[in-house]
C-alpha cells in the first residue's frame, strides 16, 4: 500500500535513483559508438535501466506485507 510511509519513502528513493539513471553524468558514460547487445550503448542503457526501474517500482508496491 502506498499509504504506508515506508513504501512511499522507498518509492521516493527510486525517484532519486531514476533521476540518477536518466541524467548527466551517467548518460555521458554510455554516449559513445560501438554496440551493447546489438544496440547503441546509450539506447541500451536507457531502455535497460528504465525497465529495471519499472521492475523495482512493481516490486516495492506489489510486495505483500509479511
Amino acid at each position: 500500500m502506498i499509504r504506508t510511509r515506508l513504501v512511499a519513502q522507498r518509492l521516493a528513493f527510486l525517484f532519486l535513483l531514476g533521476c540518477f539513471f536518466f541524467n548527466y553524468p551517467l548518460l555521458s558514460i554510455f554516449n559513445q559508438g560501438g554496440s551493447l547487445f546489438g544496440m547503441p550503448p546509450l539506447y541500451a542503457w536507457l531502455m535497460g535501466s528504465w525497465l529495471f526501474l519499472i521492475a523495482l517500482l512493481a516490486l516495492v508496491i506489489e510486495r505483500k506485507h509479511g
Partner: peptide, 12 residues
Amino acid sequence: LGPTLLFALAGF
C-alpha cells in the same frame, strides 16, 4: 522518463 519518475513520487 519524466512521467515514470512522477509515478515514483506518487505517494507524496
